[in-house]
Structure formats: C-alpha cells, structure tokens
Nucleic acid binder design. Structure first.
Length: 272
DNA sequence: GGAGATGTTTCAAG
DNA sequence: GCTTGAAACATCTC
C-alpha cells in the first residue's frame, strides 16, 4: 500500500536497527522481486552493518557501506517489518536479514516489489525533486505542465518522474482539493495552485506519519503491522473507499471510475 | 468463479 | 523523437 508516507513508515521499521550487524541473509531466489538483482548476490550483506537509510518517493535506500546500498521498492503489496531474531518464515517472506536481536523482513505476496544492490557511492544522484523538497519549485511545475499538455491531471500526478511518491489516493486527494475533474488536461491547470495542493497533501501525509510514529515505537515488535494511517476527517481519503462514500464538502455521493488506468474517486459536484 | 486491487514497466499508437 | 494509453505482471480478497 505504498505512497510516500507509507514508504517513510516502512523505512522506519528497519531504521530501528541502524548500527546492527547482519548475521545472516535469507532469500527466495525465484521470487520475482529479484528480477533486477540475482538473489544470491545479497549474501554480500552478511557481516555488514546497517548504517543509515533514506526514502525518496516510493523507494527506500539502506546503506551498509559508502558504496554498498540495498534499494527496496514495495510495489503494490510489499511490506517491511521487524520481528524477534528467531522469526519463523511466513508465506511470501522473500528476504530476511537477521541481526543478533531482530529479523528484518520484506514480504510481498504479489511480487510487484523490487530489490536492488548498488555498489556506487550515490545511486540516487539523478532523481527528480520530491514534492516536499524546496527544489519542487513553481518553475519546475510550470515545466511539467508545458511538457505534458494533454496528459490528464491524475496521470500527471501519478507520473513518478513528475511527482515522486504520489500514489492513487494522494492523487485523488489533490484533484479534489483543486476542485478539478481528474481527467482535466494539464494545459488547463494553474501551476501555482497545483504546486500548492501537491505540497499540502504530501507534507500533510508525512506530518501525520511523524505524529503517529511516536506512539508506534512504544509498541515494540509487531510483525507486519504498520501504524494505521488516518488523515483528518475532512480529507477525501476518509471517504473514498467506502461504498456510497460522500464528499466531505458537499455530502454528495462520490463518483468512481477508471481514469489514467486507475480506480478514481471524485465528487461530480465539486470537481468540474 | 470472477472482478478488482494504494504500482511500475514495456510496448505500441498517435 | 516525444507523449500518451493500455496490457502485463502474481496473488489475495470480496
């Protein structure tokens, strides 16, 4: 279920063990998640210490040495979790890194996730700016619109080169706040408003994770469980998946259809 | 049993 | 050559 806030939450699961040394690496060689990296290559992590980690959009990078990084993408159903070191492998656990105290687990039943090893010092030097970064400037947004004039708003928001980290629910949230139908061609957008709402939703989602995480750390081991993410009630998110869900502004029933190849919820009254 | 699912890549058409 | 759209991927849940 990964969008940038969930990805950040997933990163923090493993980040609890910064400074821990990896005693063993268990992989499922046939899992599709290793399509970019032969599974046995991950044994190189044995004996290494997890030094630090960071997230960018929907990707995570775990650093073991200046030129040794493990990149993880969760796809649609991937999860990172931690468990006691003697954790028994569950169904769809594709990667388990064991330290003296804990098991760091990557589980993904649909296998749309992805694992990669990097042996350079800065594998992320070339990524586009994230909405929450200062480099996500008005000029950048104007440029995106100019380059994709016919692209529907929703498709532009979901483009990971344009708006890294934004996923389906955040895209719907942004369209709703803009008061625009998700199919609106990008050329009709106002760059300043678009940038403002993209940043509002991105920062809002991250802020919420930051608040929630303080209560999560006290819970200790809870394999596979993320803290439930509950944006404020006046966000569309609260209503979009309920059958017969209604618009938080006007109370009209939300419309649902496939736009930009994805399930989309919007308010026909407020979004035109 | 069938449809749909909070993502990305690849391929083809415009 | 660039932009855009749709299918494919694998498995579970409703």
């Amino acid at each position: 279920m990964p969008e940038l806030a969930e990805v950040e939450l997933a990163r923090r699961q493993w980040a609890t063990y910064h400074g821990s040394s990896i005693n063993s690496v268990e992989v499922h060689p046939k899992a599709r998640i290793y399509r970019d990296c032969p599974a046995p290559a991950l044994r190189i992590l044995e004996g290494q210490t997890l030094l630090s980690s960071k997230a960018h959009g929907k990707r995570m990078l775990f650093t073991f040495a200046p030129a040794l990084h493990l990149e993880v993408h969760l796809g649609m159903s991937g999860k990172l979790s931690t468990a006691p070191h003697d954790h028994l492998e569950h169904r769809h656990d594709h990667l388990i890194l064991r330290t003296a105290k804990a098991a760091l687990i990557f589980n993904d039943y649909r296998m749309f996730g992805r694992i990669m090893l990097h042996d350079c010092s800065d594998p992320w030097s070339d990524l586009p700016p994230q909405p929450q970064d200062s480099k996500f400037t008005l000029a950048r947004v104007q440029n995106l619109i100019a380059r994709h004039p016919k692209k529907p708003l929703k498709a532009l928001l979901l483009d990971q080169n344009a708006c890294p980290g934004i996923g389906n629910w955040m895209a719907d949230e942004i369209c709703w706040r803009l008061g625009l139908h998700p199919g609106t061609p990008s050329a009709q957008l106002t760059p300043a408003s678009l940038r403002k709402e993209i940043r509002f939703v991105s920062l809002g989602a991250l802020k919420h994770v930051a608040e929630k995480n303080t209560t999560a750390s006290a819970e200790g081991f809870a394999p596979g469980s993320y803290v439930s993410k509950v944006p404020p009630k006046n966000w569309l998110f609260q209503h979009r998946w309920k059958k017969g869900g209604s618009c938080p502004k006007c109370r009209n029933e939300l419309a649902r259809d496939t736009i930009a190849s994805r399930t989309t919820a919007w308010c026909q009254h407020c979004q035109t």
